[in-house]
Design a protein around this nucleic acid. Structure first.
Length: 928
RNA sequence: GCGUGAGUAGCCAAGCCAGGUCAAAGGCGCUGGAUUUAGGGUCCAGUCCCGUAGGGGUUCGCAGGUUCGAAUCCUGCCUCACGCACCA
């Protein structure tokens, strides 16, 4: 519709806002919110859009309510993804190039610079800012920074200086994916194949034979009690190796892997697998068993030698059966050690039979193995032959037996991938390597955990249900490897070959925002830990920076901190959001701890998960281009509450656009409204309630609910208002007041439109800083609302009768309830036990006089009361409207609505057969 | 498998925590009507089934249970989402 053109385009408004949201400490009460900053390695899609728009709505709301609001933004460029991206682009990788060229629409000349990872983050940081401005985010852009800024690095150094001196950073060992060719750890994005592979921790069970050790890798150490034999591949050449001073027999592959896992390995000899068949080996927990041949044994898995538990491992069972079919080793029988519901004595055997497995090459073997494994792990209990472990659940026994083997029987841990192959992008195979000088944050520290638990109790969480998840996360956290060898970031000051990894350098930056715009002017060399101590902790006598400046920074920090709310998607609860609580607790005093967290749901696109790599994304800028920024905003905050998942569907979005157009048309039409009408007071009264409800909703971050009230609520009030006006009228001067209020209520959500309308309605300043509407108690009029409610309900009744009436109505008579039924209504409403009301009432002389008529009315009234909202029941019983007067006044309205002659009569004086149906708030209706 | 949360009419989504207000708000979609209506606007009505008087019947993942009464409380089951670690 072309007639709702706005004076100011979105671009005009964006320009007016360019510097409008710079925020400095003032005499006003502050409101500081922040969001998890983006990693700018690609373009923003609509899912990102909501993450930043919801806080913007909140920021705009509180700004209008007179708070000094700070909403800052920065960019997280720490880590290694962009390094991988830049290398893939340099290499001309088609998939990556297509993603950046076709999906993100990066110009060719810019892509060419992307072989430098910094060019990528620079480019997309600027893009983010541009698109965020396009969407109207009221951010103080002066405070923008990236996490590799020298000043920020100094800040991180300061943070870790404290954590380290508190003993919260410790050295330990950690398994990583590692490429021997590149001599470097590799991230998932650095892999050609196996990027989903996980590192699994096996235990080596050491069997002994002729003075050397035979290790068998297993995840199920408790099954040692059921070992009947070992498996070895007769076609593989094994090696004898000196491992940490003892001679082991294992595959060459396993020996190589061990060498990467902090073991001294040197090969001392070779043995054919075939030569080992039949040898006896022993372990103290299972005694002596023999080595048997099996073709399924892979030298690249574990040690290349497998311990066999035929009672519980289908592979072992079927391999044994295969041999026995040939008449060999018939003296070996499965030894059960686990009892599990749903299976008999030998679960592996049952499963194999149930699935009709013929031999060990059956493709169903993996599935069968998984089935038995799962059943035993979740429900299994150990049998008597397991000694002290009898009766223990499998998951407990597994831990216990593993620990005993490690402590008493020389077992070691062995790491390997859960799938093969894992290949580095250099083409070489990747392995698990143990880095023994890795730095850890001691999140496992029970005292620290307790402090965080205490903090979680005090913090405001939205929605409150996530509290349990935070607590669980704190309990579950172990020490966190907080450093990496490759990537962008800040070096560990005391061990500069390491960098702080991304989740560990982004836990305190909300504090950095408060001074970011000022500190960038100070040379980083001057930013010693003492300087930050002064700014953030208020102590010390730092040199090198003008004290007056430091005092200003200190006071700005104290003005804003602690932050009021931090926003983030729910997938960060289990790491980032909880980490930052740990760090705040460790560094800042009680009064500076985070006050609140808001957790978002996830975004879907046409019902499917949004994913850049799968191309299932809708870019935010494209959305703004196609629908307008306000439409995008209104859809994103209105289609679901922030913590719920939302689904972007283009056809739903276009209807939002029509809604905004209706608003514009309404406001523009209301400009000339004059005069007064009877219903004005009702509209005014309703408006006050809408203001109140929307305000409450936004205070609770319920953007959807807020929109329901402020948009659809007011719209539906207006529809009824217009319907109630005399024929030919388009409404009174009250509409101008409604328009002014409406614009302000919607300004946080659709600020571009509202900014323009506000201007058009003759206001000078920005609506972004206009005063938030406050409900005017004097204009709330319950009597009028109640009277109008009576009319609404009656009109609905008339409509539903008309609908099923075959004849055209000419006359309509409303029969008003007699006063004594009002008395019954009041008595029933007030009664504790509604079942005995009749008896009570009949004790009353005046009621008894009416006899059966009164007795019949009671159940009718009870039913009526049950069907009305309790607040309405209260109102009717405390101040029942003069129904005759209400309808007399509305008679011409009803006549017009239904094209009938209307009469209003008292039921008692009518004598009509339907007169008895008249009840309070429900007149009898006679249509003829 | 473990942890957390969720399953409501064609779709989205309120309500459930504090049982009767619930055939269940609101929006979208769809259907019909009105409109000097451009077949994409606006307004009105309908949208589980039945009904020539404002009513009745069957519903809120499935199966039970508690209660005078359950979408709302309890138990079991099924399904889905997020997380399960060194990664943004």
């Amino acid at each position: 519709m072309g007639d709702c053109e706005l004076k100011l385009s979105e671009a005009d408004v964006e320009e007016e806002w360019r510097n409008a949201f710079h925020s400095d400490p003032s005499g006003k009460e502050k409101y500081y919110i922040n969001v998890a900053y983006p990693y700018p390695s690609g373009a923003m899609h609509v899912g990102h859009g909501r993450t930043y728009i919801v806080p913007d709505v909140i920021a705009r709301f509180w700004r209008m309510r007179g708070r000094q609001v700070l909403y800052p933004m920065a960019f997280h460029v720490t880590g290694s993804p962009v390094i991988g991206i830049s290398q893939r682009i340099a290499r001309g990788d088609a998939k990556t190039l297509s993603l950046y060229r076709d999906l993100y629409k990066v110009p060719q000349d810019v892509i060419e610079r992307f072989s430098d990872p910094l060019a990528i983050v620079d480019h997309f940081s600027n893009e983010y800012e541009r698109v965020m401005r396009r969407l109207g985010l009221s951010i103080d852009w002066r405070r923008r920074f990236t996490t590799i800024l020298p000043q920020y690095s100094k800040f991180i150094e300061w943070q870790y200086h404290h954590l380290n001196s508190q003993g919260r950073v410790v050295r330990g060992e950690h398994p990583v994916k590692y490429c021997p060719q590149c001599d470097n750890p590799v991230g998932d994005h650095d892999l050609l194949e196996g990027d989903k592979a996980e590192v699994v921790k096996f235990i080596f069970v050491h069997f002994e034979s002729d003075g050397f050790l035979i290790p068998c890798a297993t995840l199920r150490p408790e099954t040692i009690y059921g070992v009947t034999n070992l498996w070895i591949n007769p076609d593989v050449r094994y090696v004898k190796a000196d491992v940490d001073g003892t001679v082991w027999l294992l595959s060459q592959e396993a020996a190589d892997k061990l060498a990467l896992q902090k073991h001294q390995v040197s090969i001392v000899g070779e043995v054919d697998g075939a030569d080992l068949i039949g040898k006896a080996v022993s372990h103290p927990l299972c005694g002596s068993v023999r080595i048997l041949p099996a073709g399924f044994v892979d030298p690249d898995m574990g040690s290349g030698i497998v311990m066999s538990v035929p009672a519980h491992a289908p592979f072992d069972y079927i391999a044994l059966v295969d041999l026995q079919k040939k008449g060999e080793y018939t003296d070996i029988a499965p030894v059960p050690l686990i009892q599990v519901d749903g299976y008999g004595e030998i679960p592996a055997k049952e499963a194999v039979i149930r699935h009709n497995i013929v031999d060990q090459h059956d493709p169903k073997m993996d599935e069968v193995t998984q089935e038995v494994y799962s059943a035993e792990f979740s429900r299994g209990k150990l049998l008597a032959r397991c000694g002290d472990h009898e009766g223990k659940p499998v998951r407990v026994a597994r831990e216990d037996v593993g620990a005993i083997m490690e402590a008493e029987y020389g077992s070691i841990w062995f790491y390997d991938f859960d799938q093969q192959p894992v290949v580095c992008r250099c083409g070489s195979r990747a392995f698990v390597r143990i880095l023994d000088d890795q730095w850890f944050l001691t999140y496992s520290d029970p005292e620290w955990k307790q402090q965080v638990h205490d903090q979680i109790e005090k913090i405001s969480l939205v929605p409150p249900e996530v509290r349990a998840e935070f607590d669980r996360t704190v309990d579950w956290l172990k020490d966190w490897a907080c450093t990496r060898r490759v990537g962008l970031g800040t070096r560990v000051p005391w061990d500069p070959k390491w960098l702080f990894e991304p989740l560990s350098d982004s836990t305190l930056y909300m504090a950095y925002y408060t001074i970011a715009h000022r500190i960038s002017e100070i040379p980083s060399d001057a930013l010693t830990p003492e300087v930050f101590d002064y700014i953030f902790l208020g102590r010390g006598e730092p040199e090198g920076v003008d004290r007056a400046i430091l005092d200003e920074l200190r006071s700005e920090f104290l003005y804003w901190y602690p932050y009021n709310y931090r926003f983030s998607a729910k997938d960060l609860i289990s790491n980032h959001l909880t980490f930052q609580l740990f760090h705040h607790r460790a560094i800042f005093p009680d009064e500076l701890q985070p006050k609140g967290l808001v957790v978002f749901g996830m975004g879907l696109l046409d019902g499917a998960k949004m994913s850049s790599s799968k191309g299932n994304v809708f870019l935010l800028e494209d959305a703004a281009q196609e629908f307008g920024a306000d439409t995008v905003r209104m859809f994103l905050v209105g289609s679901a509450e922030p913590w719920q998942d939302f689904d972007w569907r283009n056809e739903l979005v276009s209807s939002v656009r029509k809604q905004i157009e209706r608003l514009i048309t309404y406001v523009q039409e209301s400009k000339d409204a004059t005069g007064t009408y009877d219903v004005d007071a009702w509209l005014s009264s309703r408006l006050q309630r809408r203001i109140q409800k929307m305000t409450e909703a936004l205070e609770l971050f319920q953007t959807r609910q807020a929109l329901q009230e402020a948009f659809f609520g007011i719209e539906s009030d207006l529809k009824w208002y217009r319907r109630r006006l005399p024929a030919g009228s388009s409404g009174g001067a009250v509409l101008r007041d409604v328009a002014d209020t409406w614009i302000r209520l919607l300004a946080p959500i659709i600020p571009f439109t509202c900014e323009s309308l506000w201007r058009e309605n003759g206001h000078d300043g920005l609506v972004s800083y206009a005063e938030w509407p406050v409900p005017d108690e004097n204009r709330i009029n319950p009597e009028i609302e109640l009277a109008e409610e009576l009319i609404v309900r009656t009109v609905e009744d008339i409509e539903s009768i008309m609908k099923i009436l075959p004849v055209t109505a000419e006359k309509l008579t409303l029969l008003i309830t007699p006063e004594w039924k009002n008395e019954i209504f009041r008595r029933v409403a007030a009664a504790e036990d509604r079942r005995s009301v009749t008896k009570e009432l009949m004790k009353d002389e005046s009621m008894r006089k009416r006899g059966k008529e009164a007795a019949n009315a009671v159940p009718q009234v009870i039913k009526l009361i049950h069907s009305l909202p309790p607040t309405l029941v209260d109102q009717i019983s405390t101040r029942a409207p003069d129904e005759h007067a209400v309808f007399s006044q509305a008679a011409s309205f009803i006549e017009r609505e239904f094209s009938v002659k209307v009469r209003i009569l008292h039921a008692e004086s009518s004598g009509h057969a339907k007169a008895g149906m008249a009840l309070p708030f429900k007149p009898a209706i006679v249509i003829e």
